[in-house]
């Protein structure tokens, strides 16, 4: 019965989706044409170096792609983000403990409040002295970017849990351990996933900044390196890649949240 209902309401065909998407891209297409025109017909050849036309950028993208250079830098950046994220997941148990036990909150909160307002980027000079140039330093900066959004969201998720849910569990015979694992952690999950989304976004921004100054590879390094040789086309390709990868990470987490937490509407469209 339910099967019949879903199959009779099939999703619109691929062509129809593409059609409607293309309509939405009209403004972008116009702007690209305008850009092409200005760059080719209005600017002289010296200033064209600063604003190469879209066609030049596409061919630069092709160059970077086919040489494998773009993929290599993207892979290095992603690897740093992932490693830093894995370290930063320590904020989930810390946040749960801070949200649940008052004494833990009282001890840790002043420390966190002192560290939190320091932007991750302000740690760059110190971290270069500590870790030198390379992966460890980059990961440290990204870690800081990811850590606090997850921590704060986890704490809020735990503290915001409805009192009646805990009471219901308690009067159904749940032990304190069961209440923590089966109720509190579950109830806070949508907010934790939101924290991960925000954290990965902040981390991705911090990553690029960290790579601008403290790396020999990665997308941040790529665009800074291109600057030194005045390859504006490479810079723009790098910037576009950074944006697209950031968007993809966000979409992936949303999709994951939707799959893993089908009962929650936090990841809703």
């Amino acid at each position: 019965m339910i099967k019949g209902a879903t199959s009779s309401k099939r999703p619109p065909g691929l062509l129809a989706i593409l059609g409607s998407k293309i309509k939405n891209l009209t403004l972008i297409a116009v702007l690209l044409c305008l850009w092409q025109y200005v760059s080719v017909a209005v600017l002289d050849s010296t200033s064209r170096v600063l604003l190469p036309p879209p066609t030049a950028i596409f061919s630069a993208a092709w160059e970077l792609l086919s040489s494998g250079e773009l993929l290599r830098h993207t892979r290095d950046s992603l690897k740093r983000e992932v490693v830093a994220f894995l370290w930063a997941t320590i904020s989930i148990p810390i946040g749960i403990a801070m949200g649940w036990w008052r004494t833990v909150d009282q001890q840790l909160d002043p420390l966190m409040e002192m560290l939190r307002p320091i932007p991750p980027l302000a740690w760059i000079p110190l971290s270069i002295l500590w870790f030198g140039i390379g992966d460890a330093q980059n990961q440290f900066i990204i870690f800081l970017g990811i850590f606090f959004p997850i921590l704060l969201n986890t704490i809020n998720g735990v503290k915001g849990i409805e009192l009646n849910l805990i009471r219901a569990a308690r009067c159904l015979g749940a032990s304190e351990g069961n209440i923590l694992w089966r109720i509190v952690v579950k109830a806070a999950m949508p907010q934790i996933v939101t924290g991960i989304r925000v954290g990965l976004g902040v981390g991705w921004m911090a990553l690029v900044a960290a790579e601008l100054v403290g790396a020999n590879s990665g997308l941040g390094f790529l665009i800074n390196d291109a600057r030194t040789v005045l390859r504006t086309d490479y810079i723009i390709v790098g910037m576009a890649t950074i944006g697209m990868v950031g968007l993809l990470i966000d979409q992936a987490i949303r999709e994951l949240g939707r799959r893993l937490l089908p009962w929650s509407r936090v990841m809703g469209r």
């Binding site: 409805e162 009646n164 009471r167 219901a168 009067c171 159904l172 579950k186 109830a187 009962w263 929650s264």
Partner: peptide
């Protein structure tokens, strides 16, 4: 202390939304 021997139906249901 609270126990399953006196169970409650809450005004706002208090169902576990993930179950």
């Amino acid at each position: 202390k609270p126990t399953w021997q006196r169970s409650i139906v809450f005004q706002d249901y208090a169902l576990f939304p993930w179950m």
